[in-house]
Design a binder for these strands. Sequence first.
RNA 1: GCGCGUAUAGCUCAGGGGUAGAGCGCUACGUUGACAUCGUAGAGGCCCUUGGUUCAAAUCCAAGUACGCGCACCA
Length: 745
Amino acid sequence: MELEKKYDPSKVEKKVYQKWEQAEVFKPKGGKGKKSFSIAIPPPNITGSLHLGHALNNTAQDILIRFHRMKGDETIWIPGTDHAGIATQNVVEKDLRKNGKSRFDLGRENFEKRVWQWKDEYGGKILDQLKKMGCSVDWSRLAFTMDENYIKAVRQTFAHYYKKGWIYQGERVVNWCPRCASSLSDLEVESKEKAGKLYFVKYFFKNQKSKIKNQNGISKIKNAESISVATTRPETMLGDSAVAVNPQDARYKNLVGRKLILPLAGREIEIIANSEVQMPFGTGAVKITPAHSFSDFEIGQRHNLAKIKVIDKDGKMFGDIPKKYQGLDRFQARKEIVKDLRSQGFLEKVEDYEIILPLCSRCDSVVEPILSQQWFLKMDCLKKPALEAIKSGKIKFYPVRYKKICYDWLEKAYDWCISRQLWWGHRLPVWQTKSKIKNQKSKILDLKIENCDKNIYVGLTPPPGEGWTQSEDVLDTWFSSALWTFVTLGWQRPGDKNKDLEKFHPTSVLSTARDIIFLWVGRMIFSSLELTGEIPFRKVYIHPIVLSEKGQRMSKSLGTGIDPLDLIQTYGADAVRFGLMYQNMGGQDLRFSESHIVASRNFCNKLWNIARFIGINLETSKIKNQKSKTHIKIQKEGTKNDKEILRKLAEIEKQVAKDIDGFRFGKATHLLYDFVWRDLADNYLGQAREQMQVEKTKESTQAILLFTLIKILKILHPFMPFITEEIWSKLYDEGLVDEEILAIS
RNA sequence: GCGCGUAUAGCUCAGGGGUAGAGCGCUACGUUGACAUCGUAGAGGCCCUUGGUUCAAAUCCAAGUACGCGCACCA
């Protein structure tokens, strides 16, 4: 067997991948008594290209898949991409802006077309990257969260919830991003601390009204009877409908019920008692703005206060407010209002204060709590079985600490705002009509439920008849990705592919990063349990997040990102895979160091040269004619060295299998590295050289060398599939192994 | 504020109750040897701090410090 002196991945990888594809080795192979093993890939967003985190995650999954496939399990790994509503919309808008255009210039329909173009381009790139990584996914089952059947499944799900009465429409305060012009879920909001101010504003009692109105100077109203409130957001005061104090607060006890005149606006508001007010904070009196604050909304509900909107969806002041503030940007308005409060004597003092700014996780704009009409999904009934599945251990977490994190979130999750005011995504399957419905009980054919209610129709297809308009809103992107494991396996899809669902669901493993435990993992669990009656996966593997060597987040804009494709080009896919796993020791983060990729590249070459050494020293003609090529009589005849290497080899095989099973990829690669380099190359190869000089031990040593090579290729294959397959093919060409393709041997 | 994670060589990290380990980097030497993507030799460590357990602690326990992450409506 002749091998070139150096292993050159660029000559091998493409060829090998094509060979696998042609032989259809990635498709599940059934058989009697076969266990099934399945993974649905966390579908990458179509926003751009894959980063090192994806490379790590996909390598981990490919190791699992290849390991089980070689074990003889019926194995499937489903690839796909996520339409990623708000994220994708934003990148496409950004792209448009380069040409000075906005989505409004295109209009909704053309904008959607544009995003589909984007999807074709970038979705394709992402899939190509999976190939370059060597991922053994079943391409015949490629999925996208906006495939035709996926759309149908999403609508079916919406209708299902709606029928159960778990979806409702309501006017609530939601996180609103003025730039994205959409509502956001809590999980899409990031909090950042920032230096700000705390403004102390005097609200005067009603009987002082005339005095205030005639007021020009500060001195005159100084003695007027007033109550002081502290706020970080004075611009919202125009929407105040009360001032709240703690009923326990001796300072204000007697003032409850008194009327105040709202500064600048001149409206009358009341002092109310609320036990949630923290007495030590500020002045102990807090202004209540039900339309622009989550907590104030709650208080407002309880006290039946007016919800006065003063900030519009574009972030500008509007509504029933003094003319001079109309149309002002919210931050400009704050300046103006503070100025006016000061000049009119309402501003008592200003203190420095660290405020927590809510920011849009997609575009970094300051999020505005705004009262608006949205759709919600009730969590009460959905979360119970999910909690049970986690608690009971039906779903296991690796590392185990994430179990509690997921459980705690789910336990206190409240109703999920599922509507978004975007153009890209699954439009709500809700139609409304202004005209009176003649036949209130008109049956809905495709759902067979009576879902006409308040002129609302919910169904898979538009309702019969004229005058219906579909909701402009789209669903939160996680509403659809929550269905990923079972929709990709054919849930609600007619035809014979539904066998997949039976065979492969629940999936075996979900491998993902910790930052989407809430967004995705939790929601998959309750969605799957409700819709299929099954858990979506048995094990959840949470892999470390890949940081730069300095500990920063990998990010293109920071210049800290590393393109896995560049690494693959330099070092080869196997080296990138092995190097990433070598660093994956199970911590919550991983500081990526290229030195380990270098080491892995060298390791590949080491392996190559071990094979070369063995190839040179084998008398292939002899072995070829043996019935079983790896059959060797080592037990009795072996030297001390032989026994030692074979014992270690057996140990490694066992240990690596255990480690893969327990998601200890780092440990497995360390073991393999040390065995191959130290025990095999450094020690045994030298010993073997000597043993082969002696006629008595020559033949058995050759047999052991071949046996060890074959074994180690198999053990290493899930980690470094290309080089092992290439060496294997050389062995096959020489007639040293029976099976043609290592990946399924 | 609450919770979680991490702390070992210049860097990235293993290990683990009893002489401190790897890769990368660095220094010196070495190509007839499967491999210079290699080999041999070497420099380089209060194993975060303080207590506790122990014959013995880098390791186990507790507290502290630093850094990172997550959650939380304190206006």
